[in-house]
Design a protein around this nucleic acid. Structure first.
Length: 533
RNA sequence: GCAGGCGUGGUCUAGUCUGGUAUGACUAGGGGUUUCCAACCCCUCAACCUGGGUUCAAAUCCCGGCGCCUGCACCA
């Protein structure tokens, strides 16, 4: 199925459509409809099982709007801020910092200055004033002048800011991981290709924190996972994750863990193995925070589409917030607690002796290691502080470090698109979506063979029984039975149950499996138990 | 953002050059008939992206906007 077909299909069968269509549409925004919402929820359920239940991630649902200081600290205000210039003559637009040598390193006023001496690379005419384009949506918080705020461009910052709190929830122990499902916003210059490049999108992200010298190792289970890797040198290999880690293809053991987990997640939701690969970023496409990054990609009619990024972010974010905010974002390294004898000033004695100058002395020794005999300058004079003005105290201190983090970040909208493409089947007679039951939008079609002889009444009864045990079922009595099967197949309903005359006699129904079209006659209870997940 | 192409019921589409009641199919809904893989018959709902201009008259010609596609640029 190609892109145009997916879009038409999604509109026709209620998966998604462009948002705000009545007013001409707005690029980069989608509405998800009845079937789309179910499909999304199913994908998220599998994701939660993998990451929250199996991997034990703590969950967070952070605020969507953040204050300006946050994005200054995270680097998004600097790095998401693309300087643009237009040519006065031919109208072409350029990234200003790409026109000047080392422009990406330059301060903005220097860059503007350098640009004034630069000609349009296309036609040689002069360039316009530099304008900044920020990929973040900006907004005002509160009334009046308001506080400058931005819609978050990634869910991750919510987790980093909550790190000290979450660490306490984990009773202070590292490593631990936090998972979050939520929307993020980026004002893309050119939002195209529907679900693949959205201005408002849903991400599933994990931040896996660990002590720098104590990176989580690959488990036996994860190291056995087979995976296809394309390294930054362009070499493609298919091997076990364990091998890829031990031969150095994937340097970090935790990145390797998350590549394996991502592989398991994607194959579970129904992405064929041969359409899945992980590609290492070259150093020039790496994000501002990242030291090693692998993109999980799915092969589609539009080429390889990035659906997850697994990035080693080091301590970039925690140290940024640690430095910019008043909070402690570091953790004590266990086992490094040492007792040290330190000297502390005797403020009472200092006050009695030096009166108002005591303040100056205390200020002077605030940030230095206190020792008897130390010389302090007070109003131009050197004053010696003897042990008489201080006392010795035993202090227990640990080494403080920033936790490191490995982040897998999944784009739900893209995954959904790729899944539609890759699970689309056609055999000349029918076209259908062949997803595993877990990610099928409905578990069951309930269909009376006809609406006569009380078959529909019986079917409604069974429908009720099914929903009572949490089966997500769809009822359809319109048209021929074949037509109903076809309708159900098209949106990937996994089982179809048909109620016929024999049902009234002996309480059995036929249960049809979507992909094979095979039918079995079972008792109603057996059939429902089989369908129940 | 630039260049080119395009925009007609839910979907696909004819009509646009050459201005004059908008074509057909599929889907969907109602009814009939049939009853296990999109059968058939009747009926019904439903569209010219938007704003301006030209004209007696605009889906059609012209201009702007919005949207979609392709390429360039951009893409933490």
């Amino acid at each position: 199925m190609d892109f145009q077909k997916v879009i038409a299909f999604a509109t026709r069968r209620g998966l998604f459509q462009p948002a705000f269509g009545a007013y001409g549409g707005l690029a980069g925004f989608l509405d998800y409809g009845p079937v789309g919402v179910k499909l999304r929820r199913r994908i998220l359920e599998v994701w939660r099982r993998h990451y929250v239940i199996d991997a034990g991630c703590l969950e967070l649902d952070g605020a969507l709007i953040g204050p300006e200081v946050l994005f200054k600290a995270s680097g998004h205000l600097g790095e998401f801020d693309d300087p643009l210039v237009n040519c006065d003559d031919c109208g072409k637009q350029f990234r200003a910092d790409h026109l000047i040598e080392d422009g990406e390193e330059m301060a903005r006023d220097k860059l503007a200055n350098a640009l004034s001496r630069t000609a349009c690379p296309n036609c040689g005419a002069g360039l316009s004033e530099m304008t900044a384009f920020n990929l973040m949506f900006s907004t005002k918080v509160g009334a009046g002048k308001g506080l400058q705020g931005y819609l978050r461009p990634e869910t991750a910052q919510s987790i980093f800011l909550a790190f000290p709190w979450l660490l306490r929830q984990n009773r202070g122990k590292l490593p631990f991981a936090v998972g979050q499902i939520g929307r993020s916003f980026r004002n893309e210059i050119s939002a195209r290709q529907g679900p693949l490049r959205m201005r408002e999108f849903t991400a599933m992200e994990v931040e896996h924190f660990f002590l720098p010298d104590n990176e989580p190792q690959l488990s036996d289970d994860l190291s056995k996972v087979t995976i296809t890797l394309l390294n930054s040198a362009g070499k493609e290999i298919t091997c076990s994750v364990g091998e890829a880690h031990s031969d150095g293809t994937v340097n970090s053991s935790l990145v390797a863990c998350h590549l394996a987990r991502a592989q398991l997640f994607f194959t579970d939701i129904g992405v064929p193995k041969n359409k899945l690969r992980f590609r290492q970023h070259g150093s020039n496409e790496m994000a501002h925070y990242s030291s090693d990054c692998w993109d999980g990609e799915i092969d589609t009619s539009l080429g390889w589409v990035e659906v997850v990024g697994v990035a080693h972010r080091g301590d970039y974010d925690l140290s940024a917030h640690g430095n910019a905010s008043s909070k402690e974002f570091r953790v004590a390294v266990p086992g490094t607690g040492k007792e040290t004898e330190i000297w502390v000033p005797d403020i009472g004695k200092l006050g009695k002796e030096f009166k108002s100058d005591a303040k100056i002395i205390l200020e002077a020794i605030k940030d230095i290691e206190l020792q008897p005999g130390i010389l302090v300058e007070v109003n131009g004079d050197k004053v010696e502080l003897t042990s008489e003005y201080m006392s010795q105290k035993t202090e227990r201190r640990s080494e403080m470090v920033y936790a490191n983090v490995v982040e897998p970040a999944f784009g739900l909208d893209r995954i959904l698109y790729c899944l539609l493409e890759s699970s689309w089947k056609s055999d000349g007679e029918r076209e259908w979506i062949s997803l595993p039951q877990e990610t099928s939008p409905y578990d069951l079609l309930v269909a009376p063979l006809m609406t006569k002889d009380n078959l529909d009444i019986k079917a409604h009864e069974i429908m009720k029984a099914a929903t009572k045990i949490n089966i997500d079922a769809y009822y359809d009595e319109a048209g021929s039975i074949g037509r109903r099967y076809a309708r159900a197949d098209e949106i990937g309903i996994f089982y179809s149950m048909t109620i016929d005359h024999q049902t009234l006699e002996d309480g059995t129904v036929t249960l049809r499996e979507r992909d094979s079209k095979d039918q079995n006659r079972l008792s109603i209870d057996d059939a429902l138990n089989k369908v129940r997940r």
